[in-house]
Design a protein around this nucleic acid. Sequence first.
DNA 1: AATGAATGAGGGTTCATTCAT
DNA 2: AATGAATGAACCCTCATTCAT
Lengths: 216, 216, 216, 216
Amino acid sequence: MTRDNASSGSRRPGRQVIVDAAVRCFYKQGYEGSSVRDIAEDAGVTPAALYHYYASKQDLLMDLITRFMASSIDRTEDALRRAGPDPVARLFGAAQSHVLWNASDVASSFIVNSEIRSLSPANREQHIAQRDRLQRLFDTCVEEGCDKGVFTTPWPHEASRAVVVMCTFVARWYRESGPLSPEEIAWRYGHMALSLVGASRGPQFEPPTYESVNGR
Amino acid sequence: MTRDNASSGSRRPGRQVIVDAAVRCFYKQGYEGSSVRDIAEDAGVTPAALYHYYASKQDLLMDLITRFMASSIDRTEDALRRAGPDPVARLFGAAQSHVLWNASDVASSFIVNSEIRSLSPANREQHIAQRDRLQRLFDTCVEEGCDKGVFTTPWPHEASRAVVVMCTFVARWYRESGPLSPEEIAWRYGHMALSLVGASRGPQFEPPTYESVNGR
Amino acid sequence: MTRDNASSGSRRPGRQVIVDAAVRCFYKQGYEGSSVRDIAEDAGVTPAALYHYYASKQDLLMDLITRFMASSIDRTEDALRRAGPDPVARLFGAAQSHVLWNASDVASSFIVNSEIRSLSPANREQHIAQRDRLQRLFDTCVEEGCDKGVFTTPWPHEASRAVVVMCTFVARWYRESGPLSPEEIAWRYGHMALSLVGASRGPQFEPPTYESVNGR
Amino acid sequence: MTRDNASSGSRRPGRQVIVDAAVRCFYKQGYEGSSVRDIAEDAGVTPAALYHYYASKQDLLMDLITRFMASSIDRTEDALRRAGPDPVARLFGAAQSHVLWNASDVASSFIVNSEIRSLSPANREQHIAQRDRLQRLFDTCVEEGCDKGVFTTPWPHEASRAVVVMCTFVARWYRESGPLSPEEIAWRYGHMALSLVGASRGPQFEPPTYESVNGR
DNA sequence: AATGAATGAGGGTTCATTCAT
DNA sequence: AATGAATGAACCCTCATTCAT
């Protein structure tokens, strides 16, 4: 599964070639460590061509981050919608979906979570707003579970944060070549999230098949 | 609590001034984003002076990372030693100590966890070895709990990883000005770690006082 | 009074739009400081469109300069013709006309007098020839006055040069919003020119009305 | 006579080498037309070395302009002081000195009078203040002559402006290889200035010798 | 121990211009 | 007549580093 940017406004092929190259470079060398020349070379174009699509290297980073975060939010909302009203199903679904998404584009996930510092103040602010929106989806989810007495954690806030962090950072170690499929990992993390909020002491959902997760 | 570098070979005062400046710069602007001039200026010396203490900017980064990781390991080992044989107490203690350590130097923690990419291949390899050593302390801890039937998680490996990640990344959001003391946060995370491995459904350790934690 | 380019070969409207934009840009930012993009944008066309009318940015500059200088010469010749044989009337008329012309298009005048350096060697040579032709009109005028004993300056050459310079550079400070009309200024400069060559010690021509000058 | 910068704070030799090179480049190719590499090459240093002395190319231009204008003002004030109270002697002296100064460094004079556009807004403002101060020295001089009835021009303001312009722009055509010495030219322009304000109809000061002018 | 001057390489970005459409 | 995409060269400037003093 690769990043879908059907929802973004930039379908021009030249543009996508550049973003993909940027993701590879930023992932390997970081934003500051990647020169525009590096990116252009990786994309197979001249440095100047890059400036047809993006006003600056910073713009390129911001576009990449914004789109990844927008998808993170969209997917989490979808997962919550699909899960129905049960807090257990909701948290499980959200965590599972979040792991899947981050595992699906390890490079982008890594960039989004380590290059915040490289954003200009204005862009950073905008990004943090998106990050907060995502966190709040999980916060609400956990709070509801606590209110209904289904989750027993005394610290919904910390637990919610820990859930997002641990799911997000699956991208730090997940490799396609590893022993577990993304679906299996996501399923386990779904249950670990429930553990964390004091909702269950063991697996209660069906193990994943290739069709059952995230609508696929 | 500030970084102790008693164990490092660099007790010369000039050296510490530079490391401190580097931490501030790398934290704010990242490694590639910080010029040697920036660091020197922050330290109140000339760029050339910096080369009396470090052979290169890369050396400075590596020194900083190595020492932070060495302390991470030392402290975790200390915590395990103090906890005695009980798996619950051991995991609680290790997690608690790890949170405290990362909250005690948010800037260094951040650098260590986001500038791995900026290390030269040789240095990176060395760093990953340290990171693995630390992870293994938690892995062993969780495995023992599972073996003894005290922890009920079916996925000790994933759980252990999640514990380290969630404790480490407390540095991402913790601010001294926040409502919770580091000790309170560490105490909660200790319990959340137990939750995650299926060891408890609520607080079972004494709440922290300012003297009870980490030997202080 | 605006630049008439009836005499130039470029009557196509698209062309004039571009020249006008170029004048604005070169005036504000200089030739080297104005990018083809700047000019195109100011003209409301694409950079590529510009190349339908001009082979290069240099061509655009040269066209602009050449036409302005051609008009400078034409107008001076006209003024001399209208003035008749009297050296006093001739110098007065030429100076007056030259001031009027330069005040009528301050921007072009400025460009013509400060971007000579930006011309290619071949173009520069051609421009200097035009400039010399213009200067010679005044030189002849002053010499005749001296020969006839009407002008008393011992240095006709320097005086003639000074007259042209001082009239030309009215464009440096003249603004439409100023207290004096171009006609009033031109009238005064006509007299100052006479002063300079030692022909008079005060106003001797009729003050300007809006119809009396330059045939308008 | 070359620019003396004894009065400036920059006596470091490296600095002067760079300024001299900049003057040559800006004179030949203009500010925008001269690359930092051009200047550095002309000075025999690396482009980077240039940034030890100047923060930017703009700074270099501004320094050059400011110092030239400061000298213009100083020298004019000196000339007025030396001339004593007689308006005729004062205007003659000021014009003569101004011609000499501009002829002494044709390149700098040219730059100062054609690169105002290339100054940043803040720098431009500062430069214009200097230019106004200089102009006011001549304005006052002419006004005094008119008040005392020694100068008969009805337009002191225009005349004063014309005097400065014609003296300044001697640098446009003066070449060391020409037939007239700077002193001879300055002497003639002194008289032409008097002509312009209606003070004399012919030479009244002693012709120049190599020791009599400007204190030399 | 520390500096000021210097450097070669490379940074992000803009340039005038071309060309298929 | 006009465009959008593309380019190679060059732009100003900053980089990490060196070295004589």
